Amino acid sequence: MNALPLYVSILFFCVFTSCKKKDETKPDKDVTTGLHVKDGQYLADKCGNKIVLHGVNMGSVYAVNFGLKELEEIEKTGANTVRIILTQNYQDWQNGGKLTIVTGAKIEPIITSCLAKGMIPVLELHDFTGTTNVTNDLPKAIQWWTKPDVKSVLLKYQQSIIVNIANEPDNGAASDVTYRDANLTAIKNLRDAGYTCPIMIDAPYYGKDYVFFLYQGKALIDADPLHNLLFSVHAYWPTNGAFENYSDVKIRDNFKALKQSGLPIVLGELAAADIQNGLAYNINYRLLMKLCQENQFGYLAWWWGFYNNPDANNQLSMTNDGLYSGLQGAGFVIAYDDVNSISHTSKRACK
């Protein structure tokens, strides 16, 4: 039998080997080598252990030295995570409050400090809180995350961090479709930029509208080529608020619906009160903590408090001097003095 012509042989080789069409449904990266969302349902560490986030929010951009002292104190709670509040610019209190750009070099010590203490850094951008135009402003957040100096640092640690695209980037003005599409574009742009870490998305309407995830959560996960998303609800659900009331029955129903969704849910902000028009309206935070534990949802308390910048403290600060020994009231309860507190429930990721 005569041999096939050379060009025919090459054609067959291409068709059956290197010229095969790429399967676009398969991720390009193996995210299981670091923090990852398993089966679109829960966060897991690189060892495959389920990680339920229990920690606090910490205002790095309002703290002296970006809160490195505060991180030492937060570690004493046993927290397995800290949500780090960032802005594109900050007032450098070590240099007279000069307005200064937040750079990757400024962020890196926070990341390394958290990781050295066994706490997962959740990095969030705070500039677009309560925006009236998420379609316009979420791309600005992505521009910041993909700045060369910021991106180069974060990609070094992305097996161990979570990126929270933007804090509460909607004041209730966006429709579900608008909010979904803005986040779909943001997810795609972050993945195209090389981010493979878990991406956290806040609910619309200042993070409170958990129902959005019930209807749009699966579409967001399916659209992410890595299926590596976390959904954050900010549970400012006061018992008798100025605008809304949340009975214990209503809160239980909310949790039931979230649990039945099977989605990877975390309460990205849990507080003792909702501040409305300058007044504090009490939240049944103990019930929130209990239901988080029963449903294996994580929670991050709002917020820690400041050591060298006490003027930044307010009525929701867990400690007014930034020290573990200064924990007071609800802050003490959330951090330590409850069966569902951080100290009693937090388990850290494997190293």
Results as ranks from 00 to 15, higher is better:
residue 85 I to N: 13
residue 87 T to K: 09
residue 89 N to I: 08
residue 90 Y to W: 11
residue 91 Q to M: 01
residue 92 D to V: 04
residue 92 D to A: 02
residue 92 D to C: 10
residue 93 W to V: 15
residue 93 W to I: 11
residue 93 W to Y: 02
residue 94 Q to M: 13
residue 94 Q to L: 15
residue 97 G to P: 14
residue 98 K to H: 12
residue 99 L to P: 07
residue 99 L to I: 12
residue 100 T to W: 08
residue 100 T to Y: 11
residue 104 G to N: 07
residue 105 A to P: 02
residue 105 A to R: 13
residue 106 K to N: 13
residue 106 K to A: 14
residue 106 K to Y: 02
residue 109 P to L: 04
residue 111 I to W: 05
residue 111 I to K: 03
residue 115 L to W: 04
residue 115 L to D: 13
residue 117 K to M: 14
residue 117 K to E: 14
residue 118 G to A: 11
residue 118 G to M: 07
residue 119 M to C: 08
residue 119 M to W: 12
residue 119 M to N: 11
residue 120 I to F: 10
residue 121 P to Q: 09
residue 121 P to V: 15
residue 121 P to N: 14
residue 123 L to N: 11
residue 123 L to H: 14
residue 124 E to A: 11
residue 127 D to F: 05
residue 127 D to Y: 01
residue 127 D to A: 08
residue 128 F to I: 14
residue 129 T to D: 02
residue 130 G to L: 01
residue 131 T to R: 04
residue 131 T to M: 06
residue 132 T to G: 12
residue 132 T to V: 12
residue 133 N to T: 09
residue 134 V to Y: 01
residue 134 V to P: 09
residue 135 T to R: 06
residue 135 T to P: 02
residue 137 D to C: 01
residue 142 I to E: 00
residue 143 Q to L: 04
residue 144 W to V: 00
residue 144 W to S: 03
residue 145 W to N: 10
residue 145 W to F: 03
residue 145 W to A: 07
residue 149 D to W: 04
